[in-house]
Nucleic acid binder design. Structure first.
Lengths: 245, 245
DNA sequence: CCGATTGCCTAATCTGGGTTAGTGTTTCCT
DNA sequence: AGGAAACACTAACCCAGATTAGGCAATCGG
């Protein structure tokens, strides 16, 4: 189970470090989040459903999950991926009802953090609020970029863009070695995230392999020519806000 | 100039009141935001460009604006509408660079608020932070709903959904009287927001008129049968989080 | 061990919606 | 008043991508 090896707050720590330098005391404060219960969900099961009133903040430590919205007739749109190190519902302080669902795409492990426990970490290291808000703002930026992708980019451009984004995000949490990374989700998931049918998504993958942009097999994605990929996708990394201030 | 009559913080006050009860002192504190310079932009001009480093928070008081992203080859996606009462860049505290542009769709008037001036309002009435964060979280929720729309809903469903959303949002700031409201933007803008060509957007409008769902002329939109519209759009208002806690 | 499930892939068909190329109307500018 | 934009709308063409209907390989469960 390679996707289950990464664990603890290490990915989160790396992620937040991209935004502001964190010291040993920050790491210790954040480690307090690990003391809560750790939960496991099987692939293809829901972690939370739209309409629920969430009472915990979830920190994903291994596996992939997603935010999705669905329509009464069954159509489904994945509106975002959660990778290890991501918080799922930081907005719990403000919103009383989930307007979307959260599902595990692979087997997933996460901490369930009580708001009060969370508060203690912030009381201890108040400047961490900025890092956590940054996490939320970046999510919103990714959301906007996806809207641009689905609204304007062609399927090939769209998929290229997604792969580059995932590469950068996984690298930020130490889950991309060289130009390869684990892509543990199905083509169905990719289709649902890109607003395409599985069939057409598959065709697009074939094309990318044919053009030798990527190699994909055994849930391992290898990017052969990231510059060309970025050019096709018209990728501009500014929306990930990885620059330290 | 009917779209320019509404002004001041009245729309903002109404908007935030949907989330938490605000008293006279809150209103006074918020009124301090009106003391800054008021700016005017003509229709079809940019208020801010992607890549810029914003130094002010903008509060739209009259007219419509939008967030948009564009690609090097000219394709453009409107990712959100700003209506009177909306803040344009609350995230200025966290992000150093805009990952999208902001454009005036009609003639627009807004206050430019210095972060420091903003801080004073918050220092005076700290509980307003929740209301402002709520404003941001709702924006993110709308963003997700749009992704669902563009990814999964048909053009007819998509447009129906947008009209219902606009109706609710405008009503919240006192800009919808009865079942009609001012829709001061062009079909081109509607197309860009929905990921459609102008031609097809126009076809879809025709269909909605033919089905007697709406009447649209002279920039006035009238919703004839909101229940049927909501049913077609599979509209669920939860994402607007209008419920008081 | 075998049957069932899940995921990947291909081929054939068909239609939704893009593209292009117009016309007519209103508003704005000087 | 007269010309130029901007905007709304229509028609004809056609292709990208959805839909449907499979087959094949790998994995899982009993």
């Amino acid at each position: 189970m390679p996707t289950l090896t990464a664990a603890g707050i290490e990915p989160l720590f790396r992620l937040l470090s991209r935004y502001m330098p964190l010291d040993e005391e920050d790491r210790e404060a954040l480690s307090a989040l690990e003391t809560g219960p750790i939960c496991t969900r099987d692939a293809r099961t829901d972690i939370a459903r739209e309409g629920e009133n969430p009472t915990v903040i979830r920190l994903l430590v291994s596996g992939w999950a997603c935010r999705y919205k669905d329509l009464p007739d069954g159509r489904r749109q994945i509106v975002g991926f959660f990778l290890p190190g991501d918080f799922c519902d930081l907005n719990i302080y403000i919103l009383s009802e989930l307007d979307h669902s959260i599902g595990a795409l692979t087997q997933a492990r996460f901490y369930e953090i009580q708001p009060q426990q969370f508060q203690e970490v912030i009381d201890q290291r108040p400047h961490l609020i900025r890092a956590l808000l940054w996490h939320e703002m970046v999510s919103a930026g990714i959301q906007r970029e996806w809207l641009l992708s689905i609204g304007q980019r062609s399927p090939l451009e769209r998929l290229s863009h997604l792969f580059v984004e995932l590469y950068y995000r996984l690298r930020a949490v130490g889950l991309a070695t060289g130009m390869s990374f684990d892509l543990p989700i199905t083509q169905n998931h990719l289709a649902e995230a890109n607003g395409l049918s599985v069939v057409h998504l598959n065709r697009t993958l074939q094309e990318m392999r044919r053009e030798e942009l990527i190699e994909l097999s055994d849930r391992q994605l290898r990017i052969n020519d990231i510059e060309r990929l970025k050019q096709i996708a018209m990728f501009n990394s500014n929306y990930l806000h990885f620059n330290r201030q």
